[in-house]
Amino acid sequence: MAFIALKMRKNIFVVGLALTIFPNLCCSSGNKQVFSESKLIMGTVVQMTVATRTEQEARSAMQEAFAEIERADGLLSSYREGSLIAKLNREGHDHKVPFEKDIFDLMDEAATMSEASGGAFDLTIWPVASLWGFDKGGVLPDKGSLEDAVAKVGYRNLHLDKKNRSVGFHRRGMGVDLGAIAKGWAVDRAMARLAARGIDHAIIDAGGDLRISGSRPGKGFWRIGVQHPREPGVLLLTFDLTDTAIVTSGDYERFFIEGGVRYHHILDPVTGMPATGCQSVTVLAATAAEADAAATAAFVLGPERGISFLRSRPGVRGLIVDADGALHWTDGDLEKMARR
């Protein structure tokens, strides 16, 4: 009787020991909670969601990340007199303006995107953008001024000196507007700041420019909804995503209506008028900067050429809702991933 009891005890002990060691080899889900915060920056609602162990960690990291976004806006907004881009626009005709590495690399990326998209995304669209003034609500420019402004647009007239990291203008009256890529870039920087603080599970949402890392604790993903372009408060579809950037450009974000016609903020650099082929474009890419610029380019290119353009870029996927409300996808897998 005692012998049997002993043997049983030994077996239980061995099993118990094995079970104790085994779980330690797996990753620990930790005891993470989710914290959120929102702020109005860059004329947009910026929302952050992070998963951390303590609220203190979350709040202080988000503070830093918000500060990073504010900093980016201060540096890059063409509408702010004190920004580096505004300075470039004032001085670029007289001499080449030097930039620090990060900003220069951003301009380089924007210039490359301008070329790759055949000018659908054009970082030199400032003369046209400043006429429309969407930062203040928007006004309809007169035909003559618009034609003059369009003539001044052209990424080929921008000179990027890679050796000296400086930028110069080769055409009178031209100017740089990074609006269609700056928000994404700011989001990438903010996400890097969160990562530097050890936060690997977060969402940064800057009014439609989203970057996500990791997943919601307890799940393997974050659930991201895509706004319906014509019905406010309704979702078109949702994706379960992790570690990616997703950006939507839509004609419903900034617009004004005059004479019964809707004029929105995504301008075609060739005509100077709002692009008309699409209602919204949603792009997934590795960085929010790329997704932001690609979404703008695809929107201007229209549903067919836009999808071809997105397909041509490695690691980029997306969908376009055209002017009639029909959906176009870059690939069938993405379509299958979407939930309605």
Binding site: L19, P23, S29, G218, K219
Partner: peptide, 19 residues
């Protein structure tokens, strides 16, 4: 205790909306 601990750790690996 060892068994309780092992089960506790194993159960902690299960992803759940209500942790």
């Amino acid at each position: 205790v060892a068994l309780a601990l092992a089960l506790h750790l194993l159960e902690a690996q299960i992803p759940s909306p209500l942790p």
